[in-house]
Design a protein around this nucleic acid. Structure first.
Lengths: 132, 132
DNA sequence: GACAAATGATACAGTTATGGTATCATTTAG
DNA sequence: CTAAATGATACCATAACTGTATCATTTGTC
């Protein structure tokens, strides 16, 4: 089981690099060099980050990407939402209108407790604190 | 993201039923009736539970399955290990010999913290406590 | 012993998510 | 005008999940 998928992982690396560099903007080409990530895949990720409002893109020669939001305001939870959708541990079996039996509700409560902890932790991790 | 896959879920239901019934043993046929689970899939699950030493099987007419271990000693963690393998949140990107950069180690530590919490919780949930 | 009812073993198949590729259009600096 | 960048989109390969199907083996009952 993976908490973080590869695209989220790559996004973390890309944002970390963009946040830490002195350059005004960074092109996909630069990022491929530095991060050793397959180029077309990285491009797709950057585009998603742009659409999500976390990066700002500049087209044309000399273009690239820059942060649209300070790294402190980009939590891991937020990134995961972009690439992995809303976080729910128990969506498949427990979200039905009624539990098939009572025991499972007990289970549901305990899983919700785990979920709350994870979400709290993920919100507390931001791209700023990963840089230090 | 799913914490619990469907076969683990079905296993929970099956064990709960077997633990709560008065019968000495329960056949796959009975369980299909009660739990409304596809028969061949359930059979496969029961066989795995047997191989894992959690159920004991009896072949031949009148045969079926009984608990091999008291329900209090079957934790959710243990069931998940049977059907979903060892639990590791960070296996893909962090288990490499060296982190590609230091920031990620920071991330790794925080994810390990989450993982420890989850494992502790999953071990604390057992089939006995779900029955009450 | 024959038969029916049960499990054991195993191979196959459909669906979805993940992790990419490939292509073409559009924008822009020089 | 051209080269270098992003935007949009369609496609593809693999693995995991969720089953299905089949045949062999065991065992209680007649």
């Amino acid at each position: 089981m993976k908490l973080i998928t590869r695209d989220t992982d790559y996004a973390i690396r890309a944002i970390s690099y963009i946040a830490s560099t002195k350059k005004k903007m960074v092109s996909a080409r630069d990022l491929v060099e530095v991060l050793k990530i397959p180029r077309p895949f990285l491009r797709k990720i950057l585009q998603r980050l742009n659409r999500a409002g976390l990066l700002k893109s500049y087209k044309g020669q000399g273009g690239g990407f820059a942060l649209e939001v300070p790294p402190q305001r980009i939590s891991l939870m937020r990134l995961m939402n972009v690439f992995q959708g809303p976080f729910r541990l128990n969506e498949c079996f427990f979200k039905k209108k009624r539990c098939p039996n009572l025991k499972r509700c007990r289970l549901k409560r305990r899983i919700e407790r785990i979920e709350r902890f994870i979400v709290k932790e993920l919100k507390a991790i931001d791209m700023g604190c990963l840089l230090k």
